[in-house]
């Protein structure tokens, strides 16, 4: 059994738009994922790539139960996201980091890291602090443990957010375009951290446009297009065989300058 099983998932959004000709608001249904299936094992780094609006982020959000799915099912370690009572365990199994940095503004770095383990895992303050220090070392920000979020750069905030997710000992990290809002310098500092983590064997599922990251770190690459899996391949295979043979992959890679 795979760690995460996405089975025939359909997800659509209601969007409201203004129709100029009738002067009325109309609701339209936008289907993002259509009968979508994929499995993830707890092994290495999987990178999701593809044009914007193809449902990559939506997929991650559905796995973490942040969006409710219309049809199909997602099982995380055998737990269904449809089961409200399992949601907490699912979220403890899959840590998530977002594009926008969302450190809790009323807490400093250390408090941000220890809040979850203390309240949810019943860890003592001392235990949590120890663990936080260990992880802060890992992301290279041990000197910032007392800092507030506005004293940190975007890259530093994202590194803290990664550490905060790791505090819960998740089996996998879901990374939703975590470098898209950062400038190149900060992007590379965050990617370095991810490379280190990958080397430590942390399982990650990342939506990203950073091809360098995909090339260096990924084990598996999933190319999504129009709400479906277009290519699901080993990294080397993807950058050699599929790049040559698959027209859509080729044009996408060309488009993003790869």
């Amino acid at each position: 059994m795979a760690m995460i099983e996405v089975k025939n998932v359909t997800k659509s959004f209601q969007i409201q738009s203004f129709d100029e000709s009738t002067k009325k608001y109309i609701k339209t249904k936008l289907t993002v994922l259509q009968d979508f299936s994929v499995d993830f094992d707890q092994q290495g780094v999987t990178v999701l790539i593809g044009p914007s609006g193809t449902g990559k982020s939506t997929l991650l959000r559905c796995i973490n139960g942040l969006e409710t799915i219309d049809e199909g099912d997602i099982l995380v370690d055998g737990m269904s996201v449809r089961d409200k009572h399992k949601l907490k365990n699912i979220r403890l199994t899959c840590g998530m980091v977002f594009q926008q940095t969302v450190l809790f503004p009323h807490l400093n770095v250390m408090q941000n890291l220890t809040l979850g383990p203390r309240k949810l895992l019943g860890m003592s303050m001392a235990q949590a602090t120890d663990k936080a220090k260990h992880l802060l070392n890992k992301v290279g920000l041990i000197s910032k443990e007392k800092a507030r979020h506005f004293e940190l750069s975007g890259g530093e905030q994202q590194r803290i957010a990664i550490a905060r997710a790791l505090m819960m000992d998740p089996k996998a990290l879901l990374l939703d375009e975590i470098t898209s809002a950062l400038d190149p310098e900060m992007t590379s500092e965050v990617l370095h951290i991810l490379e280190d983590l990958a080397a430590d064997g942390v399982c990650m599922i990342a939506v990203t446009h950073e091809m360098v990251f995909a090339r260096h770190v990924a084990r598996r690459i999933i190319f999504m297009d129009k709400g479906a899996v277009a290519v699901d391949a080993d990294k080397d295979e993807f950058f050699t065989v599929h790049r040559k043979e698959n027209e859509r992959v080729a044009s996408f890679l060309k488009f993003i300058g790869e």
Binding site: R91, G95, F98, Q100, V102, F104, G116, A165, M168
Partner: peptide
């Protein structure tokens, strides 16, 4: 309070009540 905070704490595994007590209420009171 932006939905981002809610999502971040939900992603950590907090329930709605915990999210309210530990994140939303302290932020909004400040």
């Amino acid at each position: 309070i932006k939905t981002g905070y809610y999502e971040a704490s939900a992603a950590l595994g907090f329930s709605k009540l915990q999210n309210f007590l530990f994140v939303v209420l302290p932020i909004s009171l400040r």
